[in-house]
Design a protein around this nucleic acid. Structure first.
Lengths: 228, 228
DNA sequence: TAAATTTTCAATCATTAGATAAGTTATTAA
DNA sequence: TTAATAACTTATCTAATGATTGAAAATTTA
């Protein structure tokens, strides 16, 4: 019984082999292609459970593939893990803004690969964007109906913006969000602010959360994430 | 906009996933917990619209949870659907005697689950937000039948709108409501007024309530709430 | 270690709520 | 029906609260 169908796109055969070998071993069914065109065609026809996508591709490149899939209702739900060369922060950010779900920088170990794949698939399974749902994570209880956060039965007051940011991040633990994504969610699209503003809210959040502040993690050069 | 808040308690993650997946899909907001203690705590603070309760739980078991909630004036109105293993007739009977509203035997199909949930919610609708229910909270007695509010045996006159706002807020102490929600409830949906109109009524309410006015709390940037 | 990024902090700016008054609409009594 | 009264809404001003910025310090990364 296969655990999931994974489509992998990379122009380097070595990488494809590495991915195929390690994921097959774990029971995933892996399809490998070497171009963006093939990726699009197979993604649309097979609707894989996950797409592992190299951003540097000849022809239609990874960013394009990501954009096209995420803008098509049929394929937007396919989770995407990007593969990037180290230091390509701008690509990572573009990809995340495009809707990609996670990224791995090359070179990577099989352990990392497997961990990310599992994490993304798990998150996808229980992802619900319900702003009124109670979020229970670690020792936090985020209760939107009461606009209240409790840590081990102690209540903490947050301003509206702080609360929303916390809720946004905690909704998808482990996912990285850029500052722009955070502003977009919290203040509405194209709200004109400096990214610094987000940092200040993050600081306030961490401070008020006290020892639980450590759950809000900085991803250097990319954004923030709530610890899984 | 969620159709209702449903709290689900089970120690098996699979069951929780099954419930969450199927009910979320239908537009319900689902919170999952794995122990009786958590269930009690969230049920009391959040007053969900429905509790789906496994009877076999480690620690405080389902029957206990049911008894405790049904014996507390605050939570007795929360409808409860029990989950039981096939053949546990005596548990089912105990549960029903305790005040549970329905039961489902495991294993169950999503269709059955949904049907029962809908049925129970339909039966219970309005009973919860029963506009004719007498509300006793702190030193206030709100009697909708007589359109009368008294504080420590002193009788206070309110206008129609003021009364309804007070009733609306006091119905769910601790919950924050936006001005928009208040107008919707009190004047009907899409009633064309400025949100600031609510503020003026709040001022009047607080003034007339005198020292009890402090129970109506402002949540800056969000709305108003009746102190729990 | 240098460069880039994040954190901190204080000053400034913007938004939100409270108080009060004035203007509208609805209700009641003559 | 009209006049008087009450209820409701809007407007304005002020105070309080929260959000944003920019610059310096600290930290992280290459």
């Amino acid at each position: 019984m296969p655990k999931g169908n994974i489509l992998t796109v990379d122009d380097e055969e070595d990488i494809l082999e590495l991915v195929r070998y390690n994921l097959s071993k774990e029971g995933y069914s892996v399809t490998c292609v070497t171009s963006g065109e093939e990726a699009l065609s197979i993604a649309r026809s097979n609707l894989p459970d996950l797409l592992i996508l190299d951003l540097m591709l000849p022809g239609v490149d990874g960013i394009d593939v990501c954009r096209i899939l995420k803008n098509d209702q049929k394929t937007e739900a396919i989770p995407i893990i990007m593969l990037t060369a180290k230091g390509e922060e701008s690509d990572i950010i573009t990809g995340l803004e495009m809707g990609a779900d996670d990224y791995i920088t090359k070179p990577f170990s099989p352990r990392i690969l497997l961990a990310r794949v599992k994490a993304v698939l798990r998150r996808k399974r229980n992802e619900f964007q319900d702003k009124s749902r109670i979020i229970k994570i670690h020792d936090l209880l985020i209760n939107p109906g009461r606009h209240e956060v409790s840590v081990k039965d102690r209540h903490i007051d947050f301003t509206r913006t702080e609360f929303r940011i916390l809720q946004f991040l905690a909704q998808r633990p482990g996912w990285v969000f850029t500052r722009y994504q955070i502003v977009d969610d919290v203040q509405g699209e194209d709200y004109p602010v400096t990214e610094r503003s987000v940092d200040v809210h993050i600081v306030a959040l961490r401070k008020k959360l006290g020892s639980s502040g450590k759950y809000i993690e900085t991803v250097h050069g990319v954004g923030y994430r709530f610890k899984e």
